[in-house]
Simulated assay, not measured.
Amino acid sequence: MTEKLLGSIEAGGTKFVCAVGTEALEIKKRVSFPTTTPEETMALVIDFFKQYELKAIGIGSFGPIDIHPESPTYGHITSTPKLAWQDYDFVGEMKKHFPLPIAWTTDVNAAAYGEYVAGSAKGLSSCVYYTIGTGVGAGAIQKGKFIEGFSHPEMGHMIVRRHPEDQFEGWCPFHGDCLEGIAAGPAIEKRTGTKGQELSSDDPIWEIEAYYIAQAAYNTTLMLAPDVIIFGGGVMKQRHMMEKVHDEFEKLVNGYVKTPPLKDYIVTPKLEDDPGTIGCLALAKEAYEAQ
């Protein structure tokens, strides 16, 4: 008998990464589709999963999303700046085609969970995971549970102190120069006219970038004091960045709190490009076991 698999959807603002895997969180097949309109993208997603016998699906979606099962709009993407996806019933559409247990959370929560069960936070009590890429988002976990209340955290839109040499006005349509507005990938490109991955490691923009990312780590440390803070996303693929972030973080803390050694405390994802997929598979497994 063919083993039934778990499904994973990492729904990002730029692309959807879909995968199937085992209960041991082994990825068997993964594909990606551009994030265009719900009609186009979801048709590709549904066709992909119809090839497999599934027992549950985990979804980590760009947001904001409605996370409360008792809400009439549970499973919807809500006030996203991606207009075609506003008020989209993501879980409802999947349920039409796959009447299975479906776990539903944010894309950054899913990535945080992947690192919690199998990555840099494995064996620890708590973690916060940031993605610094097309946008900035974060998920927080305490003792295996996501930290959330009336909604999920939106730490990517925190207000940070401006770098004295940074005159960029910010690009966030809601807040201008919030963390996402001045530190996400598009902010780098809008300042320099060049994508981050094409800039040299000694470009002055990286000092500015580290200044903002270190503030995110500083604010997180003082508010939540997690066991580890993980920075993923395309911007953090610049391997020289972490040393700069550590240096800026030390200046900000100024000896006020004693953290674990920074090489173990502020880190990049151990799962590299897989935290979201592994997290969605793990959440799907839990949804199946809980039914």
Score class of each variant (00 low, 15 high):
L252C: 04
K237D: 11
G234W: 07
N219E: 08
T221S: 09
T221V: 05
D227F: 02
V235A: 07
K237M: 11
M241W: 09
Y256H: 03
Y218I: 02
K251G: 05
M242V: 15
H240T: 11
T220G: 00
M242L: 15
N219K: 00
D227W: 02
I230R: 01
K237I: 10
G232M: 02
M241I: 15
I229C: 05
M223L: 03
K251M: 06
F249I: 13
V245D: 14
N254S: 14
N254P: 09
K244F: 06
K237G: 09
D247L: 12
K237E: 15
Y218Q: 03
Q238I: 08
G255P: 08
Y256F: 04
V235H: 04
E250Y: 11
G233V: 00
N219S: 07
K244H: 04
R239I: 12
E248I: 03
N254K: 14
E243K: 14
Q238F: 05
L252I: 10
V235N: 03
G255R: 12
V245L: 12
Y218K: 03
V235E: 07
K244W: 04
I230T: 04
K244E: 13
P226A: 03
T220S: 06
Q238R: 12
L252K: 13
V228C: 11
L222D: 00
V257M: 08
L224N: 04
V253Y: 10
K244Q: 14
I229R: 01
H246F: 01
G234Q: 02
G233P: 10
M242K: 14
L222E: 03
G255F: 09
A225R: 01
V235M: 09
H240I: 00
P226D: 01
F231M: 11
L224G: 06
L222V: 04
G232A: 09
L252H: 09
Q238G: 09
Y256K: 02
V245F: 08
Y256R: 02
M223Q: 03
M236A: 05
L252A: 05
F249Q: 13
V245S: 11
N219Q: 09
I229P: 00
H240M: 07
I229G: 02
L224S: 04
Y218N: 13
Q238P: 01
E248A: 12
D227C: 03
L252R: 13
K244N: 12
T221M: 08
V228S: 01
V245W: 11
H246P: 15
V257L: 15
K251T: 15
F249C: 15
V235R: 05
I230P: 03
I229E: 01
G233M: 02
L252S: 02
L224R: 00
M236W: 08
L252M: 12
E250G: 15
F231C: 07
I229D: 00
